[in-house]
Write a protein that binds this DNA or RNA. Structure first.
Lengths: 215, 215
DNA sequence: GAGTTATCTTGACAGTGTCAATATAAGCTA
DNA sequence: TAGCTTATATTGACACTGTCAAGATAACTC
């Protein structure tokens, strides 16, 4: 399929109007992002790929930031549905669930490095440029992590003597840190991801049977 | 001091040659970085601030990346000397040293957010653009973390049943993750830094007196 | 069929990194 | 001191970037 001619069924009168430019832009942008990161995603290249002029995207997104936020939104939604699947499993113990969740988080980041960078990176958050729509998806996702931590503490999987908020910040921080070191190219070797995750989970959940029994 | 006139003692014949442009550029660039991050650091603005033409910096740095690597180098050197001070203390126990080290790491990141981002961020590492000089400072710094972990295990501060490399990756990952969440604007509230650090240190070093005694 | 609105276009501007060609002056050698 | 070499700085240019303003086109509404 080439861009200029087959917008609508090829013999159509005109393609001055694209028809479904907004979603075409999102798809194309997600693709470019995957290929070359935020740095490689320019609106002009994007417009070109979609077969429209440079400024056409501005009729669907206020600016580049708004487009990026929209893509990040989708990233959160996808991760959240992945996580749901894990939490809803009833074939494994709660402790195993935590382990799978941890692995799943890192795997999601490793599988979608550029998307993860967009979701949690400074491009959006540092300059405080998250749209309301993005916040509405992201904040509950953060909160969910806290809720789950509380539940893991209650179930005796995590130490109950630590403050829940601090504990969830630390455990999330660990996942985030490992993810970042991986996707930013500092841990080059990805074959040890699983071992790293296991090690972390061991540290957070070990020895509970000895000294941190549920009350 | 203003830029154009007081390059050399003010009544000097000419200022076609700056005299010490290289270090002037590094200083000015470090300042701009601190104020507005990598995104806000342009070579043209930098040259302007230093009172030279746009392309003058290219006689001292091959390109923008090389300048950034030089600044990152200094960041590693400064952190390393900070860390040395901690490790050389003999007024506190080894376990307390680890706690101070952890807090110190996060504090360094929080105090120099943009520098930390440059040192450990994707700008340099993701595109594999670190200069040899930078690698020569950074890699030993990473390795040092592993060596210290081994020593902490031997001293019974950290669990000795975990693989040293994995353990150091996880503990470093945790520090890095907390640092990143802070400097990228995701943990807005910095008043809880100390509590977070304490929580993490507790998790990594707790209960050793019970079940993980040194052999 | 006329008018409104959504969509898309070209033109323009200021900003970026970086190359090539040129100018200046400092340093070295004879 | 004169002349040559080399380090340093300059202007001009190019290809990019995000984004605004003004105008063209076509779809939707009455």
């Amino acid at each position: 399929m080439n861009q200029k001619t087959s917008k609508k069924t090829s013999s159509n009168k005109s393609n001055y109007h694209h028809g479904d430019l907004r979603s075409a832009l999102i798809n194309e942008a997600t693709q470019i992002l995957k290929e070359s990161g935020v740095e490689g995603l320019s609106l002009r290249k994007l417009a070109d790929r979609a077969g429209v002029s440079r400024t056409a995207p501005y009729h669907h997104f206020k600016d580049k930031n708004q487009l990026l936020c929209t893509i990040a939104e989708q990233g959160f939604e996808r991760w959240q549905s992945d996580a749901e699947l894990i939490f809803n499993r009833d074939d494994i113990s709660a402790q195993q669930k935590y382990r799978v969740f941890f692995h799943g988080y890192i795997q999601y980041a490793a599988d979608n490095p550029e998307l993860y960078d967009l979701m949690f990176g400074r491009t959006i958050w540092k300059q405080n440029s998250a749209t309301q729509a993005l916040k509405d998806v992201a904040f509950p996702s953060f909160q969910h992590q806290v809720d789950m931590t509380k539940s893991w503490q209650k179930q005796g999987i995590m130490p109950s003597n630590e403050n829940t908020l601090r504990l969830s910040q630390v455990t999330w921080g660990t996942m985030h840190g490992i993810a970042r070191l991986l996707i930013d190219g500092i841990y080059a070797d990805r074959t040890h991801i699983d071992e790293m995750c296991d090690c972390a989970v061991n540290l957070f959940t070990r020895q509970l049977s000895i000294s941190d029994e549920v009350d």
